[in-house]
Design a protein around this nucleic acid. Structure first.
Lengths: 201, 201
DNA sequence: TGTACATCAGTGAACGCGCGTTCACTGATGTAC
DNA sequence: TGTACATCAGTGAACGCGCGTTCACTGATGTAC
């Protein structure tokens, strides 16, 4: 950024990759996934239609980067109201509420993150960010609920249970599928059966 | 269908609407949602590009009809291994397994059915089919799990809990998000904590 | 410290493609009399 | 029972649009000597 600070637009953008991602996120949330195009992102940033090619090979690459960014933020949301020193029960509640809050704040991005075949799921950066979220999930699943089987499969079932529950809740909530009045006030913690809360401490 | 059974193609198709829906379903599952177009459906059926307009105003109308069809089938899957005379515990297990089986058999359609903003969700037929599925959900949620609150909100929480769990499981499963070996053998019934099964009978 | 030059990150015109949609039309069907 | 005619469900050429992508190019940056 050592270009002279005139008001003439510099030839090189400086941080086009990030600018494109930001524009893509905005378009994703405002126009929806299927109306998102590389050209629109380029135009939004004020750059020619071909400029994005220097940073993203194609639309899938941009969506993949977007999803990776999403998982990084999801992790931050899950961590934002607790820390490693806190009781696991506190960590679990905070992580679940953060998870749902993320989905509510970025519903289109959240949908993209869990869509089939829209993102190249073997991307290294994406896998890393997904892994970081899974670490939290594994942590808050420990000792939660009773299941049958050997230790490894009990662990797996705990993770699947909690992840399915919070993911399903987040998606049904953001897709506006909870219609009944009595549903509207119920948060993620409210729909976990009491007995699990007792035994999960 | 009183056209003479020559091998010359009749001018009128006879059942173009259904034929288009069938073609659309095949394209949806094989090519993915974003590559589905009215023109492709028309071509697949062997009809001109403008013929579909007589039956579907636009792509959204076709997708909506597709989703409605999906909910009707989901209901059939949920009912297929039990009947109203069976014990509620049997009905619940059968419905949950049927639900997941449907998602596995038609993953792209299932994703469409729960996507945000791809379908006109105020469509009367669609709402009716969704309602029929919800009736089953409400039935199998009765007396399942303990929650706090007045009866109406306890009912709502039970439904939200079970729906979130099975929807999340179905979606994570079909999106191939269960990666660990120990996860692969665990079905929807395996990830419900034992204590709920005991008390839910 | 200067200069030459390779590399990087942009431009802008042009392309072919598939899309939904319009338009004037035509063949088949159903109905009134 | 026949006929006239309205309506329905299709055809096929044409359109404008936005898309990703190509191509030759150019301005800015970084580096070797």
């Amino acid at each position: 950024m050592k270009t002279k600070a005139k008001d003439t637009k510099p030839y090189h953008h400086g941080n086009l990759r990030d600018a494109l991602l930001t524009a893509a996120r905005r378009l994703l949330e405002t126009e929806g996934h299927s109306d998102l195009s590389l050209r629109k992102c380029a135009t939004a940033v004020g750059v020619s239609a071909t400029a994005p090619q220097n940073h993203f090979a194609n639309k899938a690459a941009l969506l993949t980067a977007l999803a990776a960014q999403g998982y990084a933020e999801l992790e931050a949301y899950m961590r934002r109201n607790s820390n490693e020193a806190a009781d696991r029960n506190v960590r679990r509640q905070a992580a679940l509420q953060g998870y749902v809050a993320f989905a509510q704040d970025h519903p289109a991005l959240y949908e993209l993150m869990f869509a089939r075949d829209r993102v190249s799921s073997n991307d290294a950066d994406l896998m890393r960010q997904v892994g970081a979220c899974f670490v939290i999930l594994a942590d808050i699943s420990k000792d939660f609920g009773q299941f049958e089987g050997d230790p490894a499969s009990v662990d797996a079932k705990r993770q699947m249970f909690l992840w399915s529950l919070v993911h399903g809740y987040a998606q049904l909530l953001t897709a506006n599928r909870f219609k009944k009045d009595a549903m509207l006030g119920a948060g993620i913690l409210d729909i976990i059966p009491d007995m699990l809360i007792e035994s999960g401490r």
